[in-house]
């Protein structure tokens, strides 16, 4: 049920493959962020490559699923030393072409593609949150819900022995305002 569990449902190998196959060129949000990384100066191209790889790991972790950079490096090394990996070229991702088209426009002599829809940055729900929403929408019963007795503790509550501790702001008001009563306008 939990988000974290769903993350571990795929093998690390599958996750890294998915990660390397991800179409970075088509991801506008990533490309925008990448610009700021590319404008920095690097000692050598390897350092730059490393910065890009790290950025990808960070981005992928943030929006898809966690990628541990060090583990990924190890996996990559293992891959290259093993038999040639299957081709992971970019074109395995379907091209996303979002065009706004209305009936009346199609009749016109369009010489340019319509300006592509600004990507409204869709929130990335946790995977299992999405699954849960689908279950609820289908009216399915969500498993694992326990019945908790709605009762009051029969034992007597404990006695309080401690005096309230002073708040930091109660001992050191900043400026004259701190001591005055709150003002509320109408």
């Amino acid at each position: 049920m939990s988000a974290t569990q769903s993350h571990t449902s795929s093998s690390p190998d599958a996750i890294f493959r998915e990660f390397t196959a991800y179409n970075w060129d088509k991801d506008q949000r990533f490309q925008q962020g990448l610009q700021s990384i590319l404008t920095k100066s690097y000692d050598d191209s390897a350092k730059k490559e490393e910065a890009i790889e790290k950025a990808k790991c960070f981005y992928y972790s943030k929006f898809f699923r966690p990628i541990n950079y060090l583990q990924y490096l190890k996996w990559k090394t293992d891959q290259s030393s093993a038999s040639p990996s299957p081709d992971m070229s970019n074109d395995i991702m379907p091209t996303v072409a979002s065009q706004s088209s209305t009936g009346e426009k199609e009749e016109k002599n369009d010489i340019l593609p319509q300006p592509s829809e600004q990507k409204v940055s869709e929130p990335q729900y946790p995977r299992s949150f999405q699954e849960l929403c689908e279950m609820v929408a289908r009216g399915e019963e969500v498993p694992g819900i326990r019945t908790i007795p709605n009762k009051i503790n029969e034992a007597p509550p404990s006695e309080s022995h401690l005096a309230p501790r002073r708040k930091p702001w109660e001992t050191k008001p900043e400026g004259a305002e701190g001591a005055s009563a709150v003002q509320t306008a109408d």
């Binding site: 709605n150 009051i152 503790n153 509550p157 309080s160 401690l162």
Partner: peptide, 29 residues
């Protein structure tokens, strides 16, 4: 005022006061 007590609010509209020296159930609901 009470070092062992804490109040919670819930999806079902209920508010419960807990005494953390006691197990399982709230002391108020």
């Amino acid at each position: 005022v009470h070092e062992n007590q804490i109040v919670t609010s819930s999806g079902d509209g209920s508010i419960k006061l807990w005494d953390v020296t006691l197990p399982d159930f709230p002391v108020r609901n």
